[in-house]
Amino acid sequence: MFEAKISQGSVLKKLVEALKELVTEGNIDVSPSGMSLQAMDSSHVCLVSLVLRDDGFDHFRCDRNMPMGIHFANFSKILKCAGNDDAITLKAEDNADQLTLMFESSNQDRISDFDLKLMSIESEHLGIPDQDYSAEIKMPASEYQRIVRDLTSIGDTVLISATKEGIKFSTSGDVGTANVTLRHNTTSEKQEEHTIIDLKEPVALTFALRYLKNFSNATALAPQVKLSLTKDLPIVVEYQVGELGNIRFYLAPKIDD
């Protein structure tokens, strides 16, 4: 059987909100080492990769590896019934066709349970090699959200260029053009306000803004976001989810015709 309890249930709510617009359904794979998900959007342009480690949960037990086929809009409907301060326990028997979610209020005076129907989903797994990136940029998640929101109102695609001057986001559209440059900045006493640019070599890539904006649905999960860029490779947009794990979004670039 599988059983996992997380006292900070709001994290689970935020995770599902972060990915439900991008992917309709997918297999959450449970194993003794934790929970993971890899799912592509319907156009196979971007991919969500979620890793939640067993030791990040208050309690975690999994006797047998199994995929749990989840329809994320339905998962979201049920998680919306959990209070923000509730502890959430997930339970499934081996080869079950449903996932039980139990919500406990923080003073344990309200307990509710819901069953989510599981689906059988044929999913393919993409092999994503570990690699060094030409540029890795850490910035406040709220700053990333602001940039992609602002630029989406101007254009459809963004050129992201990382140089020793900083990281520049450029777009253009019917109304005109926009450029936002962030410089390396660690002056704040608060680490979450830092912008850290780790540049091995300059790189410039073009991406569809609507996906980058969609990734910012994960903003509530982490104070910082990391962008990783290498020439001719998908960008990686990563949010650390506390001690629990991380959610990564991969987006294939736009390429010259």
Binding site: M40, H125, L126, T206, P234, Y250, A252, D257
Partner: peptide, 14 residues
């Protein structure tokens, strides 16, 4: 305008 690449252009399905 530039073309949108697919993930399959970069990552192998297994």
């Amino acid at each position: 305008s530039p073309l949108q690449a697919h993930l399959y252009d970069y990552f192998l399905a297994s």
